[in-house]
Every structure is written in structure tokens, then in C-alpha cells.
Simulated assay, not measured.
Amino acid sequence: MNLRALVSVTGKPGLFKLIGQNKGGFILESLDEKKVKSTVNLSTTKMATLEDITIYGEEEEIRLLDIFETMKTGEQEIPDLKADGNTLREFFRGVAPGHDESRVYSSDIKKIISWYNIIKELPLFDEEAPAPVQQA
């Protein structure tokens, strides 16, 4: 899964693809149907790549990419975003066993499901991540 260029922006719904950089900040393209381009200034906005996002775990943090891989296998049906909290929690126990239920809220689970629904059809989702660069 190669989701390196995909980011979440604090305060903005959805996901974005990092497509460039200019003097004002980073140029992003929305991944929804509108394909809107915008520039964000990192001094006032926080961004996180999907590869770097983790979920609170009881013993150790769980990588978002690992959760997406489990969701991708299709062993569990993905609930509707309007499902009740118990349904969402039960689903999340299956795809992220060992998550800290006191620190991962229903709103977090809904966000992860909505992100998955956005990226599941993208070619990057099935592409292998590039190997890390070796330092000499």
C-alpha cells in the first residue's frame, strides 16, 4: 500500500493528495469528486500523512495502514457511517484488535471508515510502498 502522498489536514474534512510546494506552503488536491486544489501554510495548518498516523493501542500503537490492510481483506463487512456506536466499536475490534477503547472514539472510527471509502478505489491503495532510502 503506497499512501505516502495522501494527507489529512486538521480542520478540513476528507483526504488530500500532496501535489507540490510553493512559497506559500503545500499544494493539495482534494480526493473527493470535486478535485479542488488548494494551498496550505504549514505555520498555521497541521498535516499528517496516512503512513504516519497511528491509533492508540492497549500495549502499543496500531498503524493506520495495518488497519486499512485488514479492512481491505474484506473479512468483515464495513458498517455504514451512520451506524450506532456499538456497531462501529464491534467492527473496529475486528480490524484493530488491541486498540484502546477508552481513547479511540466513535468519531475516530467513522473518520477511518470514511478515509477507507475514499481511498479504496485509488491505484495507490494496491501499489506497493517504495522501499526506504538507505543512508550511506
Rank of each mutant, 00 (worst) to 15 (best):
K17G: 03
T73R: 15
M71V: 02
I55V: 10
I119H: 03
T45Y: 08
A48P: 01
E33R: 11
E69D: 14
G57M: 04
D100V: 04
G20C: 07
K46I: 02
P132M: 09
S102I: 12
F68E: 01
A136Q: 14
I113G: 07
I53A: 08
V95M: 10
D32V: 00
I62W: 04
K23R: 15
K110W: 03
H99E: 10
G25W: 05
G24K: 15
K120Y: 05
R93I: 12
E69G: 10
G14D: 02
K110I: 09
I62E: 09
E58Q: 14
T45L: 07
P132E: 09
I113S: 01
D32F: 01
G11Y: 04
Q76I: 06
H99G: 10
D52I: 11
G25H: 07
G24P: 06
L81V: 05
G98L: 07
Y105F: 12
Q135Y: 07
L15R: 09
W115S: 03
T10Y: 13
F92L: 02
G94E: 08
W115F: 04
D80A: 13
T70F: 04
M71N: 06
T45I: 12
D108G: 08
T54R: 05
F26G: 00
A129C: 06
A129M: 05
K82R: 15
L65M: 14
I19F: 03
I118Q: 10
G74S: 08
I19T: 09
V40L: 05
L3T: 05
L31Q: 00
V9A: 06
A136K: 15
F68G: 10
D32L: 01
D80Q: 13
E61Y: 10
E127L: 15
R4W: 11
K12Y: 12
D80V: 08
K111G: 10
K82C: 06
Y105H: 14
G20E: 12
E101P: 04
I112P: 12
V7I: 02
K12L: 11
D32E: 02
D126W: 09
I55K: 04
M71Q: 04
V7Q: 00
E101R: 11
A5T: 14
E29I: 02
E121T: 13
T10R: 15
N2I: 06
P79D: 05
K34D: 14
Q76K: 14
S106W: 07
K23G: 00
L6A: 01
